[in-house]
């Protein structure tokens, strides 16, 4: 019980700070809008090409936003001199990982919802029809992205060239997640049933589980002195 409670406290603390400052959220929303503009300029007015590339663009947007957002989660602790506080927390450090992961998940999910909405409006895609399967895919993808991102984010916050190293570490590991989510999103937007992409969902679920367990187990080694 203590474990869940400690994770909840970390989550609550970060949500409170975010609610007061709205630092990350505002910046990420603005970044998502900017991405939409860039995609439009890069791809031009060809509607068909845009629809075909849509799932890829969507996930590219999530991941780019993730690179910005996830790398910051522990930097905040360092900048506010709270790193020692985390270190001194008694008990299993996995709880801190889960708490931070939950914060990151909520942050990324918020970005995903906004980005999806903007895509629907700007590119005239009907998202309502496939909303339920789409949210399952996005849930699995976001968990995968956030679980590795949280672990690596904690690491790189202590490293010299962090904004360089974070994507270099995160992106190769994220390839299975990216592949699975893009393929599944593609199928879902084409109106196929979720059963058609069940193998991708299984792969995503298994990968999420593996990343999550590695994160919980190794986080105590990241969060030391």
């Amino acid at each position: 019980m203590m474990f869940a409670r400690r994770a909840w406290i970390v989550l609550w603390k970060d949500l409170l700070t975010e609610r007061r400052s709205k630092e990350s959220l505002n910046a990420l929303f603005f970044f998502a809008v900017l991405l939409l503009f860039l995609f439009e300029f890069a791809l031009g007015p060809d509607r068909e090409r845009l629809t075909a590339a849509l799932p890829g663009l969507l996930w590219l947007g999530f991941i780019l936003a993730g690179l910005l957002g996830l790398g910051r989660t522990f930097l905040v602790e360092r900048e506010n001199d709270c790193w020692e506080g985390l270190l001194l927390t008694p008990g299993d450090k996995g709880a801190i990982y889960l708490g931070k992961l939950a914060v990151n998940f909520l942050l990324m999910a918020a970005v995903a919802i906004v980005l999806l909405g903007l895509f629907g409006i700007f590119y005239n895609v009907d998202l309502w029809a496939s909303l339920a399967p789409l949210s399952i895919v996005i849930f699995l993808g976001t968990v995968g992205l956030a679980s590795v991102g949280t672990l690596f984010g904690a690491m790189t916050s202590q490293v010299r060239a962090r904004e360089l190293l974070f994507p270099l570490l995160l992106l190769p590991v994220q390839v299975p997640v990216l592949l699975g989510t893009v393929k599944a999103t593609e199928a879902v937007l084409q109106g196929l049933a979720l059963a058609e992409v069940a193998h991708w969902l299984k792969l995503l679920a298994a990968a999420d589980l593996v990343y999550l367990v590695v994160g919980i187990l190794t986080f105590e080694f990241v969060l030391e002195a």
Binding site: W200, K202, A206, V213
Partner: peptide, 18 residues
């Protein structure tokens, strides 16, 4: 858990994924 998840991935019909 990790071994089980990987084994599940290998044996539980990821066969037609890519």
């Amino acid at each position: 858990v990790i071994v089980a998840a990987l084994a599940y991935m290998i044996y539980a019909g990821v066969s037609q994924s890519v």
